[in-house]
Amino acid sequence: MDASLILRVSAPLLLWVPAIVSLYLLIRGHNEPGGGFVGGLVASAGLVFFVISRGRQAALRVMRVPPAGWCGIGLLLAAGSGLLAWIDPAAGYLTHRWWFPDVGFKVPLGTALLFDVGVYLTVIGTITAMVFALVDED
């Protein structure tokens, strides 16, 4: 990898800032524009910067699990979020459930968020798998 010094030094910044923004987008997607798909794209943009500047091995170390694994976890989460529908056995698959536990204020929790997190992880896994395949072995 012969990335410029500036890019190499700023790579961690370009990795973590999009990662944080992507989490914000993921949570915001609950009721406003955003969500797992956009969030995943933003997060993978950071990883793409990282792989361009530091090479594939370094990027894989940051990800810990290989891209296909991210897809796997994401798919399991998204598919699993629909299973809670069967608290009522007659309900259709993916019927989402909601809880509002009171801890001073009401925390809105729902299986839809779990689904979105699944999408988020799957998108990251897919994009990185595609981009990493195009980067030279280092």
Partner: peptide
């Protein structure tokens, strides 16, 4: 039960796809 049987043909391969992807190195 009918609802579970209805979705199972999609969910079982989906779960298999996800788990085998997780076990990419095995």
């Amino acid at each position: 039960m009918r609802q579970i049987l209805l979705v199972a043909p999609i969910l079982i391969p989906l779960a298999a796809c996800a788990i085998t992807a997780l076990l990419w190195q095995r």
